[in-house]
Design a protein around this nucleic acid. Structure first.
Length: 422
RNA sequence: GGAGAGAUGGCUGAGCGGGUGAAGGCACGCGACUCGAAAUCGCGCAUCCCGAGAAAUCGGGAUCGGGGGUUCGAAUCCCCCUCUCUCCGCCA
């Protein structure tokens, strides 16, 4: 959530941000409601001042054994007026909030302005490794090596709910453990959070209200299936004041992630590219505001480590305003190269939300005696399905077998190569 | 699912219609004592909004889990919701 005062004082900047992020919010209406509210507040404050003063007088008189029926009568009227204005205030406040929650975070000045991903810039990249033979796609490789069972997954749940089988399941589990261990060894605290999250949590990190239709909702309990561990992990500290010396907080957590992906059927859904349930290891940082952009750089590197250790070709891109998520001020994407699919897959977004989530989540820190909102960041570290794709496509051999990246061999019980997994 | 208890400042905890923005304690800050420290003593110490001011600060308002209500006046009474704890039931 952006600060209403910030909107008031930076009207053009906010309007521009809304436009550059391809959002649509009536800022002028918000401003007129805001000024209406401020006038109302003044009126209310002076009425309440009278009420407080006279009530005190009544109280003093009572103590002296006197009665002041005419004052009470007068205050009855004042009190009614206050109630009327309070009702009005509530209405206006509601309308203000309704607009305010739809204003996206303001992009950082270093973010390129652009309509969509075509304006993203490449920050750095590893050399692409060429295979000396014609690469097979992951959906072919998983088939021949029996790593996934799409049909049976669909039988149990539906389309795009693949079931990992045999060595495939083992590889998935190896990836998760490898990632967790790597991040923990580099200073992140491991958490294992609930997978069902409530509305407040989803609002706090900015998934709601905008993305409600993309989330699975358990209606009976009004709970959402976790769409990303960003939600439960960041919300661990909702409504808290964190001690300055405890920052930065660095968390790593594994969760299954659930997304309806409404409207994306038939588009890039082949194989593991886009599925309804997937596994992800997430990095979350809660930091001192003055350090958040340095923390974004190290966070991005912390996510990249996984790709380096797996020896996969990848690139880092800086998202333009049009491609930036609702809550983010600046985001780097990590994209891994998959030679069989012949494209880059996004496996991580490293974002600085500045105080956008902290304001919604009410996460503060005390700095030089003052309370200020902390800054929150997160990065996938990293999502498994596309990493799984990249591994098998990059490590495939001409004979159709698949080597195991050396970093994963210990996690595979010493297995070095997948040869038809029965 | 049933019954009960509770939610108060950074923490702990009193208050249960007016004197309470909230006792006491802890923590924290400043000062005294000390060569220094501990202990002790004194003082200070919630947040947000509006207005005035260059600023220190001053004036007003709001806030005792959240939301409504009763009352001249609500932390305190009533209603709804959320969460926590205890007991019973069910259950991996």
């Amino acid at each position: 959530m952006v600060d209403l005062r910030f909107v008031r004082e930076n009207i053009e900047r906010v309007k521009e941000a809304v436009k550059n992020k391809n959002e649509n919010v009536d800022i002028d209406r918000l401003l007129s409601l805001d000024s209406k509210h401020r006038n109302l507040q003044k009126e209310l404050d002076s009425l309440r001042h009278i009420r407080n003063k006279v009530s005190k007088e009544i109280s003093l008189s009572k103590r002296n054994g006197e009665n002041e029926p005419e004052k009470i009568e007068k205050m009855r009227k004042v009190s009614q007026d206050i109630k009327k204005l309070e009702r009005e205030e509530r209405k206006i406040n509601g309308a203000i909030d309704e607009l305010l929650i739809w204003i996206p975070n303001i992009p950082h000045s270093s973010v390129p302005i652009g309509k969509d991903s075509s304006s993203n810039t490449i920050v750095r990249e590893t050399p692409e490794e060429k295979l000396s033979f014609i690469a097979l796609s992951h959906w072919q490789l998983t088939e021949t090596n029996k790593l996934l069972d799409y049909g049976r997954g669909a039988k149990v749940s539906g389309a795009n709910f693949p079931c990992y089988t045999g060595i495939g399941a083992r590889l998935e589990r190896a990836l998760i453990n490898f990632m967790l261990d790597t991040h923990v060894s580099r200073g992140y605290k491991e958490v294992f959070t609930p997978f069902l999250v409530n509305r407040n949590a989803m609002f706090a990190t900015g998934q709601l209200p905008k993305l409600e239709d993309d989330m699975y909702l358990v209606e009976k309990d009004d709970m959402f299936l976790n769409p990303t561990a960003e939600v439960p992990i960041t919300n661990l500290h909702r409504d808290e004041i964190i001690k300055e010396e405890d920052l930065p907080l660095k968390y790593v957590g594994y969760t299954a992630c659930f997304r309806r992906e409404a409207g994306s059927y038939g588009r890039e859904t082949k194989g593991l590219q886009r599925v309804h349930q997937f596994n992800k290891v997430e990095l979350v940082k809660i930091v001192d505001p003055s350090t958040s952009y340095e923390e974004l750089e190290t966070l991005t590197k912390d996510a990249e480590i996984i790709l380096s250790l797996l020896e996969l070709p990848y690139r880092v891109t800086l998202l333009s305003t049009g491609d930036l998520s609702f809550a983010s001020a600046k985001t780097y994407d990590l994209e891994v190269w998959a030679p069989g699919s012949e494209k880059f897959f996004e496996v991580s977004s490293a974002s600085n939300f500045e105080d956008f989530q902290a304001r919604r989540a009410n996460i503060k820190m005390r700095k030089a005696g003052k309370l200020v909102y902390a800054h929150t960041l997160n990065a996938s570290g990293i999502a498994t399905p596309r990493t799984f794709i990249a591994i098998i496509e990059n490590y495939q051999q001409e004979d159709g077998t698949i080597r195991i990246p050396s970093a994963l061999i210990p996690y595979m019980g010493g297995l070095e190569k997948i040869e038809v997994n029965a």
